[in-house]
Design a protein around this nucleic acid. Structure first.
Lengths: 212, 212
DNA sequence: AGAGGAAACGGACTATAGTCCGGCTATGGC
DNA sequence: GCCATAGCCGGACTATAGTCCGTTTCCTCT
């Protein structure tokens, strides 16, 4: 997009080597059990390179998830209903929760890492902003869709689900979040487009701006 | 409770010195801007002492919050309605959300630190378990009060509120969480006491077990 | 009061995240 | 094919969390 100066050959070679090594080591020793030094060594690059390119461990996790994430985003934007456009908002919301939980549970540890950079890092991720925007649109007509969308996503955060998993199990979590989504939609009542009380209206722009 | 061996004099003297120093330094330079070394030095104790007693920075934050937290817990257990016993569950829930947000916003940075130890630390805090238990009871009659209570508390986590504050402002957050609480209660329908699907019934015991 | 032992003390030590900058190499112009 | 340079490379360096264990202090029992 904004990359007229082509990426140098050594740079892209190293990028690939790092992602490879990281994926392998994470799978082998768990995300928490691998240090950045180890990744750099396994990839055959220096530590400086690693950090220059990915910022920190969270950024590395984000890069690893990038591909899988786009699949879900594609399904939402241009896939078949009920996840994609065409179905009723209520159905789309349920489909999103289901698909997101599939994605989340499949990559729980890496997603947790990607959301755990600096405090509040999660809310600044391009991906988060995408999910939030999507959910807020599907909650249009309820009193404060922006806040409600944040609340729903809070119940879908990696640490939250990780903590609840041993206590409640996957099934109760799925049903619980679906119920939450339903009840948020049922909370209608405020004037459809202007329910935020005081302050500026919600921002509407979404810009794909994941690192790099 | 389980503490027959009395605390040694030097121990309690040092405990007080550390809490003092920590409170002062946190207020002065912000929670993030103070290292454990600095706290130890300011308190005139060794680093080993600091960690032996509080475990880590999060544990220190928990200890600092202890007193304020008990006030809220007292209000819930034995205070006047609507926060205390006597009012309708719906009212008590609203009162809890309000009181909790007062507490949270007053000590946001320290609470954030207390919840940010190891990943998922928040869910293991004695205080969290107390709030969860209370909310779950007030949600009795809805399909899965345990999960719903976790979801409501997720919208009240320190990082969540911190991230939403600049975007939505205090007022929209307060109203949003109150609305969420209301809609969770309105989601009734499941058989009042047995709505968890499969798996063991929710645990009912609550034990005050905040470290030390 | 004094001895004995349990518990606390404290600072040197390790491990890890993240920074910095001198040196090198791929690339594009000639 | 050769040169200049933008941008990448890499490892030494810093800061901080957290551990370990020999030493010191307090409490109890006689």
């Amino acid at each position: 997009m904004t990359r007229p100066p082509k990426e140098r050959a050594d740079a892209s070679r190293n990028r690939a080597a790092v992602l490879d090594a990281a994926a392998r080591l994470f799978a082998e020793h768990g995300v928490e059990g691998v240090s950045m030094d180890q990744i750099a060594a396994a990839a055959g690059v220096g530590k400086g390179t690693l950090f220059r390119r990915f910022g920190d461990k969270a950024g590395l996790a984000v890069a690893l998830l990038d591909a899988r994430e786009r699949v879900l985003q594609e399904g939402i934007l241009h896939g078949p209903p009920p996840l994609g456009p065409g179905a009723e908002p209520a159905e789309r919301l349920a489909a999103f929760v289901d698909a997101y939980l599939d994605y989340l549970l499949e990559h729980l540890a890496v997603i947790r890492m990607s959301e755990a950079g600096s405090p509040g890092a999660r809310y600044r991720l391009g991906a988060y902003r995408f999910w939030h925007r999507h959910v807020a649109i599907l909650l249009d007509g309820t009193p404060d869709p922006e806040h409600a969308a944040h609340a729903l996503l809070a119940a879908l955060s990696a640490v939250h689900v990780t903590a609840l998993l041993p206590e409640l199990g996957e099934r109760r979590i799925r049903e619980g979040v679906l119920r939450l989504a339903r009840s948020l939609r049922r909370t209608g009542g405020g004037t459809p487009g202007r329910s935020w009380a005081g302050g500026a209206p919600p921002r509407v722009s979404f810009r794909r701006s994941q690192g790099e």
